[in-house]
Design a protein around this nucleic acid. Structure first.
Lengths: 170, 170
DNA sequence: ATTTCCATGTAATGTGTTACATGATTCC
DNA sequence: GGAATCATGTAACACATTACATGGAAAT
């Protein structure tokens, strides 16, 4: 759940029933593992039948990505907010993108170069994390670009009108 | 619906009931427009009350973006597919990203530079389309990078083993 | 006439979230 | 002893999709 979290979010309340139903269909098997420091946990493993299903799935057509991006929605309506709020929004998001970038950098650091051979699991993770890193870097670049545009205007109008409203500028 | 489609997908069956309920709450108003060539259509406009709600919404905390990206999910499992299929997947997606890039380029062409003043609706669209373009370019770059890695290996092993399976390489 | 596209909607179903619930273990 | 964390689960609700349904207008 945590590993696919960057590109497919899901809560535990969705996953537990899913695991159960997949076990019923014999795509997964499970066993309990005792832990002394923490409550016991149930470990699921994919079965041969599950593997086959998974392999079949790899050859199915890929559905286009679905996104629900509130920041873009806000950007779409940016003209009706004060410029100061716009700056706040993007400075806030800048931090988020920076964290995201660091997250992927750490993942990549955890995949030694010699293990990144084509066809290995490490290769898949390497390719995926690289995408995450590239996207985060681009988002960061965009954020900085927007902030530049906003602050430029903010500086040049601050002395004349005081607080500048987006709406009044349009 | 079409305009926010790149960052917030929704079907008409979801939107029609939403519009109705928003009109009931007097956030929207509507009127029918007769069309001679096509069936009549209902035009919704935001009310002053709706505008106020929208402005309030601009100051609310922004929820993190939600994605369901099947391509990333496939990439995550790339190690269990044949290399040829991997190439197919990424070449296919490459086309998609190219179209996406062209889509945003066209949008940007439709926003004349002189209208891109800070605080205007055109500015919001400009900022948003720029993000779309930057992201599409990055996705394209990633795609090409992956294809390069895949094809390198494909060429170097083709003569020796014929068809190469990812799994056998790991 | 039949098919296709535009436009608006509803119904059944599926997916996903929030909130609730339990119990073990550790920390203060 | 009480709060915090880990782990597993369920129930009620909200959100979203697919499929169904209707009817006007245009194209073949």
């Amino acid at each position: 759940m945590l590993r696919i979290q960057p590109f497919w979010q899901a809560k535990h309340s969705q996953i537990y029933p899913l695991l159960s139903s997949m076990e019923e269909k014999q795509l997964l098997s499970s066993h309990w593992v005792q832990q002394s420091d923490k409550p016991d946990k149930k470990i699921y493993a994919i079965t041969e039948k599950g593997m086959q299903k998974l392999r079949e799935w790899m050859y199915q057509p890929i559905a286009p990505a679905v996104t629900k991006d509130e920041l873009s929605l806000r950007t779409f309506c940016l003209w009706l907010a004060e410029i100061g709020i716009a700056v706040d929004i993007f400075e806030d998001r800048r931090i988020g993108y920076l964290e995201k970038k660091r997250y992927y950098e750490q993942i990549l650091e955890g995949i030694p170069e010699e293990t990144r051979e084509l066809g290995s699991k490490a290769f898949s993770n390497y390719v995926l994390a690289t995408k995450g890193l590239m996207m985060a870097e681009t988002e960061l670049k965009w954020c900085d670009w927007v902030l530049d545009l906003l602050k430029q205007q903010q500086r040049s109008t601050a002395s004349k009108h005081g607080r500048t409203n987006f709406e009044t500028l349009s």
